[in-house]
């Protein structure tokens, strides 16, 4: 009991220094952002760079307004966000499921690992035209590209983690007469959770790429479509805006995962600097 209360002040001390430092970092970040925005507004004009090469901040804002009213920007953004999340969810669910299945069967892992490696190396975005030939100009190709691109980092991370689960921990569970499924649920799953989350984080950034490529190659909706459309018209501001919105979508997905991760993995000791 005495040590329990003794540790409390230490935790508090860490808690008070932490926010102060991170607040300073936050201010510095915001300051840098303001500086970049100002440079973006002033430099292209000052250096006489034409608008179709690098539009200024205000050019982009004006274009944003135009896109909002005449290019159904909201609908296009929503569509891209939807397929990013959908592709991410399906791809990572499949990747995790196969990762766990192969992780439990050494035989099948050996059988399938060369193919997995080959597919992992193959550039997934190159499949986009093929999918369009197969499925036509609809949402299917971009969804498939996204699923495919998301699938592998999750699969590989889970598989790797399943291989390195502490054998002694599994033996302890066996000695306690836990069934194979209970061992998976109570030991292997939670042991691999940090790696699964790391895989999901990587996958979330790739999901945006998958959808964008799908829309670039063969779409008539979404931010990727707006990029190729704007590019065809030499409307650099439109391309800039679409890229920024894609980044925002990726960033939001990534942040949501980081938040989920910190909640789920609260039991890992935090690195003290």
């Amino acid at each position: 009991m005495s040590s329990a209360t003794a540790t409390a002040p230490a935790v508090n001390a860490a808690a008070t220094t932490r926010p102060r430092e991170s607040r300073a970092a936050l201010y510095a970040s915001l300051g840098l952002l303001a500086l970049l925005l100002v440079a973006w507004q002033i430099l292209p004009t000052a250096l006489a760079v034409p608008k179709y090469i690098i539009p200024t901040l205000s050019d982009c804002l004006v274009e944003f307004g135009r896109m909002w009213t005449s290019e159904s920007l909201l609908a296009n953004t929503a569509s891209t966000a939807l397929y990013t999340i959908l592709g991410f969810a399906i791809g990572s669910a499949l990747g995790a499921a196969l990762g766990y299945l192969l992780g439990m069967s050494e035989f099948w892992e050996k059988v399938l690992s060369p193919y997995i490696l080959a597919l992992q190396i193959a550039p997934k975005v190159a499949f986009a035209p093929l999918f369009i030939m197969w499925f036509g100009y609809n949402a299917m190709p971009k969804l498939l590209v996204t699923v495919l691109i998301v699938f592998f980092p999750v699969l590989v991370n889970v598989l790797q983690a399943m291989r390195t689960v502490d054998r002694d921990l599994v033996n302890l569970a066996r000695a306690y007469n836990l069934s194979r499924f209970q061992i998976f649920l109570k030991v292997e799953m939670p042991s691999t959770l940090p790696n699964l989350m790391a895989g999901l984080r990587i996958a979330s950034t790739l999901a945006v790429i998958g959808v964008t490529v799908g829309e670039l190659v063969g779409g008539n909706t979404g931010l990727g479509f707006l990029i190729s459309y704007g590019g065809g018209q030499a409307n650099a501001a439109m391309v800039f805006n679409a890229i920024i919105l894609l980044t925002v979508i990726g960033f939001l997905l990534y942040s949501a995962l980081v938040r989920a991760e910190t909640r789920l993995l609260h039991y890992l000791p935090k690195a003290q600097f």
């Binding site: 502490d166 002694d168 569970a173 007469n177 836990l178 209970q182 109570k186 030991v187 039991y267």
Partner: peptide, 22 residues
């Protein structure tokens, strides 16, 4: 064993319950 083999994601009392769960 030499390693405590406590499950890091469980608190102490749930760790102690581990062997009883099967």
């Amino acid at each position: 064993l030499q390693k405590d083999l406590l499950l890091p994601w469980r608190n102490i009392v749930k760790n102690i319950e581990f062997g009883l769960e099967a």
